[in-house]
Amino acid sequence: MSILTVSGSPHVHGHQNVKSIMYGVVVAMIPAIFVSVYFFGLDAARVIFISVAACLFFEWIIQKYLLKGPLTINDGSALVTGVLLAFNVPSNLPAWMIVAGALVSIGIAKMSFGGLGKNPFNPALIGRVFLLISFPVQMTSWPVPKALFAPGVTDAITGPTTLGILKEGISAGKTVQELMGSAGFPGYMNDLVGAQGGSLGEISAIALLLGAAYMFFRRIITWHIPAAYIGSAFVFSGILWLVNPAIYIDPVMHMLAGGMILGVFYMATDMVSSPMSPRGQLVFGVGAGLLTILIRVWGAYPEGVSFAILIMNAFTPLINKAFKPRRFGEALPVKKG
């Protein structure tokens, strides 16, 4: 017998740790990575590689020389941020912009608050919004997707996203029906599979849902935020659509187009910046869903997911304070005996 160890109970531990959660998220993103490479070719792989490498590098250098803490790059969180950031930019973005985005994501949005777990906002979204506001032209000129090895079209051709087409068309006075019937509009099926213009990771709803299913299966995320988010967005956009289908997009298209699925399952569920109690998570999801549709319909940008999530991130501390979990013995006043 060696020397005995004394510690407080419990003496056994569950199987999940931070690393397994982070790498679980990365695994969940693999289908979407494949789809993006399929439609955008090696450019997509280039963006992902640069983004991940830059995020890991910034995390390492800041941790080592500024925070002087233990090495954290292998905990997987910087990897997740890197892939998510890549998912949120077009595949033809210049390398230096990706690096700048990574610096903002990791350096400003995460490490300046003290690293993993301390950031109030989702780092990848901060990076994306920074890029979107600083370089609006590059961030919104989307390469037209083409199946890998398909002959013809070159990467140089760019086109708008589904939501972009609709937004511009509606403000030009056309009806939704006209726009959806027009040539070059992706349509439901293509949005589902991924043959639409857009950021790397947001194009294929199917690949993202596959990954989300994996995260549910591994119990990395819970149903609360996604259900509340999609539910409220669906209901809100559905009401608008019922009011006037000519100028409001139908709810199904809202779900499939743009970054909705990516945002709902991969970024709104970010543990660090979302509320803790189930009730709070529901409130968070509902708020984000309403804001998304609000921004999409009446805002200047065609896309509202990132802003909506960031705004709700800002409310997270308040939600945490206001919506406590139901305490045992609290809700049921027992008067017996």
Partner: peptide, 19 residues
């Protein structure tokens, strides 16, 4: 021990509904 990632698992497993 690493940083808390605010995953709220402790809240969801607490049988007394505490944080």
């Amino acid at each position: 021990v690493v940083n808390c990632i605010r995953c709220a698992r402790c809240i969801s497993v607490c049988p007394m509904g505490l944080e």
